[in-house]
């Protein structure tokens, strides 16, 4: 559906997007994930033809976004980060204008607008001025506009930001439903959002594509060892020795010793549940367990780790030979393992 090849965007001396390549398949929800300033919006703006790439090629449904701009743009419904609304219009006027702009046939306009308004819950708001609408409703107007013209691809830049919890659930359901008929690409810096919604995730950091795959694949690949946080009554030495005696414990770090209570953080081999064994060992050593928590590494931590690593490894990479794009995710993983 969408093919992105070696996409690069330079702003003066700054590389906003650095040689990104990926393919988007039909009928799938894609999530573009990355911290602020990673290049998500820039990538989306290039996909939609708002700005041009310095280098590389984007084709949408076989149409090059530069050479067959109008044909490519006709396949895309875009909701930018800040919905592009004319605040002196009502939602109905605005949607009429957008439908006309997108060259929707006169006869199709009303049904399409009705459908878009009903899907985004705009009923009852159609005749208020957009400037009097709240942020959530403005977001919906922008969303409805993106649906007009029945585009094959819907691109949403941070669609959930600024909505209240009830609206978040509604919009999430809407995106899921849309994913059944359209190809959806959305961006977010919130990982839970992306992993809940998307079939495929692309992680972008510092303009580079650092990892891609289904959320399950990513969490499988990326979640590291499980950490236990234990507080027990007893001397530090005794507690550490008791914990270390359990098979499967990789490392025990003493965190605090106060009033005869000792806190340690224990790294356990992947896939093992040693809670019972450790508490039994501590009981044998006469150090009663006061608290025991599992701190498994969440996708969030992994995400933070990956994205911060790219920043660190940027300097190194410049010294080394250029790394092939395909190898990069594996490369960062190797770094990660080495660190642990």
């Amino acid at each position: 559906m969408i093919q992105v090849e070696h996409l690069t965007k330079r702003y003066g001396g700054h590389l906003a997007v650095d040689d990104i390549s990926f393919t988007v398949e039909e009928g799938t929800i894609y999530g573009l994930l990355g911290p602020n300033g990673a290049g998500k919006s820039t990538t989306m703006n290039i996909l939609t033809g708002y700005i041009s790439a310095s280098d590389g090629k984007v084709t949408i449904d076989g149409h090059d976004v530069l050479e067959e701009a109008s044909a490519a743009k006709a396949c895309v419904g875009y909701l930018p980060e800040q919905p592009p609304l004319y605040v002196d219009m009502t939602p109905l006027e605005y949607l009429n204008f957008v439908a006309e702009l997108k060259k929707v046939k006169r006869a199709d306009r009303k049904p399409q607008i009705d459908y878009a308004m009903q899907r985004t819950g705009l009923a009852g708001m159609e005749n208020r001025l957009i400037k009097n609408l709240s942020k959530g409703y403005r977001q919906r107007v922008g969303f409805a506009a993106a649906l007009l013209g029945n585009p094959k691809v819907i691109i949403l830049d941070e669609p959930i930001v600024g909505l209240d919890p009830a609206q978040v659930i509604e919009i999430r359901n809407l995106i899921k439903e849309l994913g059944q008929q359209h190809t959806v690409i959305l961006s977010s810096h919130i990982l839970s959002e992306v992993s809940a919604l998307c079939d495929k995730v692309l992680i972008i950091a510092n303009g580079k594509l650092v990892a891609q795959g289904t959320p399950e694949e990513l969490s499988e690949q990326l979640t590291g060892d499980v950490t236990l946080q234990i507080t027990a009554l007893g001397e530090a030495q005794k507690v550490v020795a008791a914990v270390n005696s359990v098979q499967g414990v990789k490392q025990t770090v003493l965190e605090q010793e106060q009033n005869g209570e000792t806190s340690v953080s224990v790294t356990v081999e992947q896939g093992k549940d040693l809670r019972a064994a450790i508490s039994a060992a501590l009981a044998m050593a006469e150090c009663p367990v006061l608290a025991l928590n599992t701190v498994s590494m969440t996708l969030e931590d992994v995400f933070l780790q990956i994205t911060s690593q790219t920043e660190e490894s940027d300097a190194e990479e410049e010294l080394q030979e250029p790394v092939d794009e395909q190898q990069e995710p594996a490369d960062t993983q190797a770094h990660e393992e080495a660190q642990e």
């Binding site: 875009y78 592009p84 609304l85 605040v87 702009l101 506009a145």
Partner: peptide, 12 residues
């Protein structure tokens, strides 16, 4: 108001 984004990403 960034509405140029709408115009420039529409098929016109």
């Amino acid at each position: 108001s960034k509405t140029d984004q709408l115009l420039l990403t529409s098929p016109v």
